[in-house]
């Protein structure tokens, strides 16, 4: 668990323990998320970082019950006193979009092109809160104003195609927040956007969070985005959490060789014109996760034991965790 606030504070808003997700294949079941645990408190932002195939998106979709029927989800995810894993779909629908909302990477495909923005926003509200159409449209206009869309009344009557990419992502955020959720899951919310639009959206999410007091889970591969919005970070590799840390400690001295490798491979960590540092090899597919430590074939610090014994996620320095048998003897330096 990633505890950012000192012990003694109220119970976490979300507490995920040993969450595993497997998909049944032709011959065997492939486990893509393996005993993932994390937690966060109200108002906190947790970054889940990983490359494609690390299981970061699948973990967040599992919380919301948004995985296909072929997925086998086990473990526990306690949200506000309720267990999400195994919750009947009808009950989960009450939670989803109401207490927990989600925004996805592609604002182009997440909105229905056949309905007006006002229609889609007010439907999201009335599904959970009921009330008159008039009242829901007023709420929708208020949300559009909140996310910085000019002339909200007029734009309610327009269709998604007349909004730009950045504006559509604002509409998605407005829709996600219309029922004042306690938790917002943002899955690569800015990856499809240009950098100047990305910075607008990140600033918007930060200010909305301060205003509304919700918790956020930021699923991303961009460490710059993590540094600018998150309080804590959970790094995933090959379906497992390999490090959890408050961000300042994570960026100043990462504990896992993979974390250090990621930070080191950023252009900022070498002088201009020098070769970038890199992690050799590629992420293994879920059907071929290596035995022992899953990172060992790419690790600079590999020893014999790494190839045989799967490492545990150990607690270190109070509020940090790392999955590496050599963490106590390694000092990983990250160039600035």
């Amino acid at each position: 668990m990633t505890d950012v606030t000192p012990p003694g504070d109220p119970a976490p808003l979300l507490s995920v323990t040993d969450l595993s997700v497997g998909f049944k294949g032709h011959t065997e079941t492939v486990t893509v998320v393996d005993h993932v645990s994390f937690s966060l408190r109200a108002g906190e932002t947790l970054g889940i970082v990983g490359e494609s195939g690390s299981g970061k998106t699948v973990s967040s979709l599992a919380l919301l019950g948004l995985l296909p029927a072929s997925a086998r989800v086990t473990g526990s995810a306690k949200f506000d006193g309720r267990e999400l894993v195994g919750m009947p779909p009808r009950k989960l629908r009450d939670v989803r979009g109401n207490d927990i909302s989600v925004i996805f990477q592609e604002p182009m495909t997440s909105l229905d092109p056949a309905f007006t923005v006002g229609n889609q926003l007010s439907e999201a509200y009335r599904n959970h809160r009921g009330g008159s159409r008039r009242k829901a449209l007023d709420r929708a206009a208020e949300m559009l104003r909140l996310v910085g869309i000019p002339e909200p009344q007029r734009r309610l009557g327009e269709y998604p195609h007349s909004f730009s990419g950045g504006m559509r992502q604002r509409v998605m955020i407005a829709m996600a927040l219309i029922c004042s959720p306690k938790l917002l899951i943002a899955d690569e919310p800015t990856t499809a956007l240009d950098v100047t639009i990305q910075s607008q959206i990140l600033e918007l999410l930060k200010s909305l969070q301060a205003e509304l007091g919700m918790a956020m889970i930021f699923v991303t591969h961009d460490l710059g985005v993590v540094a600018s919005v998150c309080d804590a970070v959970s790094v995933m590799y090959a379906g497992q959490v390999i490090e959890e840390s408050p961000i300042d400690e994570f960026f100043s001295h990462p504990l896992h060789p993979y974390s250090a490798g990621l930070l080191d491979s950023m252009p900022q960590s070498v002088a201009k014109g020098e070769r970038l540092r890199m992690i050799a090899g590629t992420v293994p597919p879920p059907s071929r996760f290596p035995v022992g430590c899953r990172f060992h074939p790419r690790c600079k610090y590999v020893v014999e034991a790494c190839t045989t014994t799967p490492p545990e996620l150990d607690s270190v320095e109070g509020d940090r965790k790392v999955r590496c048998i050599r963490h106590a003897e390694l000092t990983l330096e990250v160039a600035k």
Binding site: V195, T196, Q198, S199, Q200, L202, E203, D222, L223, G224, V225, V226, A227, S228, I247, D248, F251, L263, M266, Q268, K336
Partner: peptide, 19 residues
């Protein structure tokens, strides 16, 4: 100015130009 840098302290300190 819009590029987020992988350094939380620098991210807190800087004034970003939001277009």
């Amino acid at each position: 100015s819009a590029i987020p840098v992988p350094d939380p302290q620098a991210e807190r300190d800087r004034t970003r130009i939001v277009l």
